[in-house]
Design a protein around this nucleic acid. Structure first.
Lengths: 427, 427
DNA sequence: ACAGTTTCCCGTAAATGC
DNA sequence: TGCATTTACGGGAAACTG
């Protein structure tokens, strides 16, 4: 009958932020032979909410009725696009909120309903459909949590509207989850994750069970519990990296120069026999949204050590693009002339060959001023080395983009859930 | 009778931004002997606006009536504080806007009116008062312009509500204006301007006439016309510096280490006989909100040159505090070992003695990472020197803080305009 | 007291109006 | 078309609220 909800949140459908405009479009999939009057559609938020089960209630602040129009392109279908819709929370419904407080706001599912009524051949027909479950947030800081819910729901169920889904959320197999994670990176950052990267993530989430691809991950483990010893959950950590890539590392990520997800153990295995100055790029596991490089250093006595710079976060990276940091990074050892310790990107690509095209030549020519650039410098007083080696899988070629595309389509389909019109045709 | 309007705009009264909450307080200055009922006050925006003369119309979106209360502290006066007031523009009043388009929105003056009515000894008395002229803006980007209007109005008139003020705004003498400018710096940045700084500003605004302190400055010259050859007006330039100080240079400014307002000619005079490495800090005249340092350099052949670094703006300064920039700044000449060319703050204060307390020791101790800091570096290929010497006044001691305090009080008084209650007592 | 959640609002970018 | 002005909303921080 109609096709629901694709909010304007750039890239992140099914999440609506209160007070921010969104758009949704409904299409009539049956051709009505003779409808001689304007077909008015009304959209309602949480129309049939089970009373007392939803803790927050919202309403559409703006105009919620609109007349259907013949679609511009092709087929003469009727459709209507609601623009500038805006959600606001109802305050103080009846004393206090209804929900038991077990669910967080981003686990609370809502829906947009669409209704129309028309008469054909003396028959009055009521049409109705509604969107897939929606998450309502009030601040962008809740976006990662909301998106986790949307992903989990659409990954693990085909039910069009199981609003109680997060009351008892199913587990995902690692095989399912890893596909979705890779799809996140290919969708939002332009390049998915290869097998090595995924295996590091699996191990992080599941320990040694990760080798077994039908091992299951709970919703809580994915998104709610903190990683052992860290003040954030697995997904919060991963999403912070996604954001870092989107804003500051896009070209470097897409050139596949960021190994990114490597355990310290694996790092040591990879680098231990490499030439002095060989380095790799890795995301911080201890802090949200950080990237560091680790390089091989040989001391006078021939001993090898690995050094990692303090991770760069969005603040630092917005002062200085990452490629420039790699180009200009210097270490001063006990007052000696500064030297750039980064020579070869693992396994052995000369630094400038890899990053040359990505360097910014910042020096601006504002006569009579002397141009100045920022340079990242470390002052070394004593040698610092990273932790000891542990066994780990060996490198393999990355997963092909084709695999991601397939996944991508599949998820998109389930998100736009076309199933509803079938149901309505029976009406 | 009552005392008007002090919106919440931190530090900048008499400017209201649409959609942003503000607060205003009214006090009854006469003691009413027996008022046995609640005295209700109503506030209205632009109550008696001359029809067709104001181009934009606004209304108070929120509750605009409130009951007077006995003031907490002392004297038993009645007062009422309106909080969470919010302004919204009326759209499409009657086709198109009324104003002739000569004035910009920040020159358009508005007012808040307060009304109350009570009966005493069988006599019904209507009370009414209103605020000083207000400027309404819709975006913080209009704040500098709005504040210029508030300053100009209160500097140049004692009329409580001359809404047509900017139809033909009076000129200010340089003596008046320079006091206000200095007061701006002492109010918002904690330290006013000394005579040398003011004389540079005067010359910038008026050319050679500045020596004559009763020379007049037009409103247009101050705030509307662009500086010759620049895409901004005098006040926009000065205000951008004020903002830069507030956000990034407060301690350095308050220690009086920023000479700031020095012409290039004066700079040369001051530095020409100084030791190598002597430097001073100066605001950019070519770009909004920038600060640079100029230092003395002696070449091999004994020739002196002055070098200035490309000005640092808020973006750069939020990556690296200014004191740290001074500490770490290096110049590489043709591949030679980098050297910090800054040795003595003019006239001859050793750099670390001046700035030592202001340095941030950034290196964080996040084992196992190697801490890294950003360092500002210039690469010199050829010598760059600043422009040629021109005559200029010699240094003198700064204006005393006392002078500013006096000024400060005076302006505050006129802004809170207590005159109105006198008028109302006659009622 | 506190954590989860919402509100507030600056500052940039985009849209709108003139 | 270009400039003046408003709107939109991300993001950090403060305020709220059980």
């Amino acid at each position: 009958e109609k096709q629901p909800c694709m909010p304007t949140h750039p890239q992140k459908p099914l999440i609506i932020k209160t007070g921010v405009q969104f758009t949704t479009k409904v299409r009539l999939l049956v051709k009505l032979p003779e409808v001689d009057y304007q077909l008015k559609v009304k959209t309602t938020f949480d129309k049939d909410l089970p009373p007392g089960r939803v803790s927050r209630q919202f309403f559409i602040l703006t105009n919620n009725t609109k007349v259907m129009d013949i679609e511009d392109y092709s087929n003469g279908c009727l459709s209507v696009e609601f623009r500038h819709l805006q959600l606001k929370e109802k305050k103080y419904i009846n004393g206090t909120k209804g929900n038991e407080g077990l669910l967080s706001v981003t686990e609370e599912l809502h829906s947009l309903s669409f209704e129309a009524c028309f008469t054909v051949q003396g028959l009055t027909i009521d049409l109705e459909t509604c969107s897939l479950p929606l998450v309502v947030i009030s601040n962008v800081s809740q976006l990662p949590g909301g998106w986790a819910s949307v992903m989990w729901y659409n990954l693990l169920t085909d039910e069009p509207r199981n609003m109680a889904f997060f009351g008892n959320p199913p587990r995902a197999t690692w095989s399912q989850l890893s596909e979705v994670l890779s799809w996140q990176f290919s969708t939002f950052a332009g390049r998915g994750l290869n097998k090595e990267q995924l295996s590091m993530l699996g191990e992080k989430l599941l320990g040694q069970h990760a080798s077994c691809s039908d091992y299951q991950v709970s919703w809580s483990k994915f998104c709610k519990e903190n990683i052992l010893g860290k003040p954030f959950s697995f997904w919060m950590w991963l999403d912070s990296i996604l954001e870092l890539i989107k804003k500051h590392l896009l070209p470097v990520w897409n050139e596949n120069y960021i190994m990114g997800f490597v355990s310290k153990e694996m790092e040591r295995i990879l680098l231990k026999d490499k030439e002095q100055g060989t380095f790799l790029l890795r995301f911080s596991e201890s802090h949200l949204g950080g990237i560091t490089f680790t390089w091989v250093q040989h001391n006078e006595n021939g001993e090898m050590s690995l050094n990692s710079v303090e991770p760069y976060t969005k603040n630092r990276l917005s002062a200085l693009p990452f490629a420039d940091i790699i180009r200009d990074y210097k270490v001063i050892s006990d007052g000696v002339v500064p030297e750039n310790p980064l020579k070869f990107l693992y396994p052995k690509i000369p630094k400038d060959e890899a990053f040359g095209r990505l360097y910014n030549s910042q020096p601006s020519k504002v006569h009579p001023y002397i141009p100045s650039i920022l340079i990242p410098i470390s002052e070394l007083r004593s040698n610092v080395s990273t932790s000891s080696p542990v066994s780990c899988q060996s490198p393999e070629p990355p997963m092909t983009p084709g695999e991601f595309d397939m996944l991508n389509e599949q998820l998109c389909f389930s998100m736009e859930t076309m199933a509803q019109w079938l149901e309505l045709l029976k009406l």
